[in-house]
Simulated assay, not measured.
Amino acid sequence: MKNPFLGTGIAIVTPFTIEGNVDHKALTSIVEFNINNGIDYIVISGTTGESVTITKQEKQDIIATIIKANNERLPLVLGIGGNNTAEVLHEIQTTDLSKFAGILSVSPYYSKPTQEGIYQHFKAVSQSCPVAIILYNVPGRTASNMSPETTLRLAKDFENIVAVKEAGNNVAQYLNLLKDKPDGFGVISGDDDLALTVALAGGDGVISVIGQALPKTFSKMIALGLAGEAKQAYKLHFEFMEITSLIFSENNPAGIKAVLQALDLCNDTVRLPLVVASDDLKQKINKYLAQFNS
C-alpha cells in the first residue's frame, strides 16, 4: 500500500470555551479555514488536540463535528495509540473508521519498551486495523525512541503501515529513514522547523501545528519543497522560523491556541495540567502576526 498522505496535514487543536467545554462552533470554523487555504489532510486527536484530557464521549463528538464540517473534502486521520496494546486494539475494533483514510498511532509511551516490544505492539495494531497506519515517533514525549531500523522493519513487514510521522527533531534519523525506506513508504515530518528540509530531502510533507493558523503560506512552502524549489521555499521558511519557535516555547498546544485566538478562530483555553500562554508570549505572537505577510 502506497502512502496516500502527501503535502501538508494539520494536527488540529481541540478548541474549548472559556468554561472548558469543547467548542464545536470554533472547531467547525478551523476546519473550514484550513480547507479553504490549501491544507491536504486533517489529523484528529493527536497531542495538539489534547487527546489525553479528552473523554471518550468528547472524542466521538469531536469526530462527528469534523466529519460533518469536512463533508468528505479532505482525507481524515484519527489518532489511536497508547502504551496499553490491548486497549489500543479495543479502540480500533470498536471505532467506526469508515470515514477515515488512516490512523496515527503513537509509539508506546512511559513504559519504555525495547525495540522488539515496539515492533510487537505495532504488529498487533497492524493486524487489527482495517485502514492505513501512520506510525508516530515522538521521543521527547514518549521517553522512547523508535529507531529507523524498527520503523523500516515494520514498513517492510506490514502493507497497511504506510508512513511514519517522525518527530524526534533529529536530521540524521530522518535521513536514515529516507535513505533506506521501501518504495511507497512515507516519511512525514512531525517537526515544523524541519518540515521543509525533510520535504526537500525526499520526504512526503508534514503533519503541522503552525500550519493550521497560517495554512495558505505554510502549505505553499511545503508544496514548493516537494517540487524541489528550494530557493523559493526557504524564503517562506525563514518567515516561519520565529513563530514556529514561539509556539513551542512554553507548551503545545498553548502556543498555537494563542495564535488562533489572535486570529479570532478560537479561545486560548487549555485543560490542566496545561496552562495558557504567558502574557509575554502572547505579546510576541501578536507582534509577529502584525507583520506577517500572508
Rank of each mutant, 00 (worst) to 15 (best):
K2I: 15
P4W: 14
G7L: 15
A11I: 02
G20H: 05
V22Y: 06
A26N: 01
F33I: 01
N36M: 09
G38D: 09
Y41T: 15
I42G: 04
S45P: 06
S51D: 06
T53G: 03
I54E: 03
K56A: 09
E58G: 03
E58L: 04
A64L: 11
N71G: 06
G81E: 01
T85G: 08
A86W: 00
E91G: 05
D96G: 08
L97A: 08
S98R: 01
F100N: 01
K112W: 14
E116Y: 13
I118K: 02
S128A: 15
C129G: 12
V131Y: 10
Y136W: 14
S144T: 05
S147K: 04
P148S: 05
T151I: 05
R153D: 03
K156W: 09
F158G: 04
V162K: 05
K165E: 07
E166L: 06
G168N: 06
V171G: 11
Y174S: 04
L177D: 00
D183N: 09
I188P: 06
D193Q: 13
D193G: 15
L194Y: 12
V198H: 03
A201R: 05
V206H: 13
I210D: 08
A213P: 00
P215H: 02
T217M: 15
I222A: 08
A227R: 15
G228R: 14
Q232R: 11
A233S: 10
A233N: 11
E239M: 11
E239K: 13
F240S: 09
T244R: 14
A254H: 03
G255L: 11
G255I: 03
D264Y: 12
L265D: 02
V270Y: 00
L272S: 03
P273T: 02
D279K: 12
D279V: 09
L281W: 12
Y288T: 00
